[in-house]
Write a protein that binds this DNA or RNA. Structure first.
Lengths: 211, 211
DNA sequence: TAAATATTTAACTATGTGGTTAAACCTATT
DNA sequence: AATAGGTTTAACCACATAGTTAAATATTTA
């Protein structure tokens, strides 16, 4: 599953159109549900051109997933570094992820399907990026524990809680709102999210682990 | 996408084998990634027999998803009813879900892919089941708020937090443990989950929303 | 401008996949 | 045992889909 990466810096117009179309299509239908013909059609290019510019379906997917998931790591590290206390660092961490998800609406479905599939087509580059994000979280939690502001927690469960809250809320809301038989109270209540999703998740998680 | 439901009560051996194989295969590869031939092969029956007993791929999937997601609703309501205080009810709620996931390892991947796909092939029966689960949670949170033990929260975000924590932790752990470049500290720490996953999630969520 | 190179295209191929069919094979009833 | 109804099966079909090819068309280089 490890395929060549297209140099994203020097992408021509055609390749850009293809990758954008691929990102949307993979996000919508998943790897197996996506047809190369549809990507070509959405991009407005001939299928052979797609193969010429990027490569086969696997390569296409590897590039998309790298583009979507790969570039978050360093951003997080920077955002966290700017904060002082463990509380502020954790808040910065969560806000950055929530913001990345906002700016990158294809990320939630792709990540969720990837997790659901056991990371079967995760290229190593991306897995390493994720690992580095986890390492940042681990550092924050340890510092908080040492300084006596956080309880002893299971780091990966905190990760699951943060990512899960954000991903499921993002993806679940449209489904919920489409269903008529959902109690009105629930819909009404969720409309008035106090602040951003990131703010709210940060509040809850901080309250959950603070001493 | 709404298809006939096979009467699960009076299932013969063949149909059972087929549905079991289908459940595993759909969980592993998702709807589009699953091939009817593989289900038949895993079940040890001829493909035509599969069509004779259950129906086409859509019907097969609808039955699987109903079997996996549908029967939780009433169980939750009962478990919650047995508890007295809102805190105990919420704990019972979370423990029941964690337990259901444990007993039903196909549930996490199927649910996650369903959410990722925007609930595109969710049969109405199942969607209604999920709605009733949400209604139970809403009741608990409102009671807690009225009695002054819970803060004012966004119910669907609490739902996302509970489900997200459980699903992502369950599905993410094997991926994480397979990756060599994950910090050893993280792996070691997670080995000693104090109590069950449900216990830990319940503790965190309760602490997050308690006044 | 002309040759060489890069890029795009329509048409094609091979294979995979969902679904069907008609015959063979059980199983129970008379 | 003979018959009828239910069940399974091998073989088959139509279509979809990933990937290729060789020619046509831009683009760059000399």
């Amino acid at each position: 599953m490890i395929k060549q990466q297209v140099n994203i810096e020097k992408l021509n117009k055609t390749a850009e159109k293809i990758l954008t179309a691929a990102r949307k299509t993979f996000a919508e239908y998943g790897y197996s549900g996506t047809h190369v013909d549809e990507i070509a059609q959405r991009a407005g290019v001939n299928k052979a051109s797609l193969y010429y510019q990027i490569g086969d379906k696997d390569t296409l997917y590897a590039n998309v997933i790298h583009q979507v998931l790969g570039n978050i790591a360093q951003g997080i590290a920077q955002a966290v570094a700017r904060a002082d206390t463990p509380e502020e660092k954790l808040k910065a961490y969560i806000l950055f992820i929530a913001d990345a998800v906002d700016k990158n609406p294809e990320m939630p479905p792709i990540m969720m399907r990837e997790v659901a599939g056991g990371g079967a087509h995760l290229p190593q580059v991306v897995a390493e990026d994720i690992a580095s994000v986890l390492k940042v979280l681990l550092g924050i939690l340890e510092e908080g524990k040492e300084k006596g502001v956080f309880n002893d927690v299971v780091p990966f469960l905190i990760h699951a809680m943060i990512m899960g809250s954000i991903l499921i809320f993002k993806m679940g809301t449209p489904i919920k709102d489409r269903q008529m038989w959902i109690p009105e109270k629930l819909k009404a209540r969720d409309k008035k999210l106090p602040g951003s999703l990131g703010d709210e998740v940060a509040r809850l998680v901080l309250k959950a682990i603070k001493k």
